[in-house]
Amino acid sequence: MLELRAITAGYDRRTPVVRDVSLSVEPGEAVGLLGPSGCGKSTLARVAALLHRPDSGTVLLDGEPVHRWRHRAPRAHRTAFGVVFQQPRLSVDPRLRLTDLMAEPLRATGRRNEIPDRVAELATAVGLTPDLLTRRPHEVSDGQLQRACLARALVLRPRWLICDEITAMLDASTSAALVAAVEDYRAETGAGLLAVGHDHALLNRWCGRLVRWDDLGPAA
């Protein structure tokens, strides 16, 4: 269970982007968070993934409150989340080949021996052909790069997936393929999903429960 309670967060304490927002995701549940551009969805997603310390409020992970964020968070907590961002170009290190990109979390957590199998398996799952894997980010399209980003997020088998507008930059068929890959993974592992977006039709089809940003505030 992932629970966000009365979260206030932002980049300047005087003008928080997210004010007093509460949200919870059950294991295996797919929650779609729908909101207009610039409302603070992405900030909330970063808080949920333990990447941004909220100014106030509590994040509960399986009932345990989280006190530490980013590097200070225990590695097991951080890697429990697979995060996919909106802009694939900005969310990859431009120097790494696609294979290294996908294998990076395995290297960082000292599981090098799993790299060949896991990368091959995930490349198939997200629909990347072997010739793409040796390329660098500038040599592939946004869609192909986003597939690699999804693979990177799945490589450590996270219990929660945070997808922040992952299809915003992509065409319909790539979007469908990515959503299908996420759903395959969830069917296999029972991971929870928090999908953030502004596309009502997509999130409605994708997620079991749809939450509107306006309903999250203290009034709700």
Binding site: L51, H71, R78, F85, Q87, S91, V92, P105
Partner: peptide, 22 residues
């Protein structure tokens, strides 16, 4: 502040690894 550093943190990279690798 680039998202790829966020992604590395989320992937379990230590401070040292983020500094040296990225």
């Amino acid at each position: 502040s680039r998202p790829y550093i966020d992604a590395a943190v989320s992937g379990g990279a230590s401070r040292w690894r983020v500094a040296v690798r990225h």
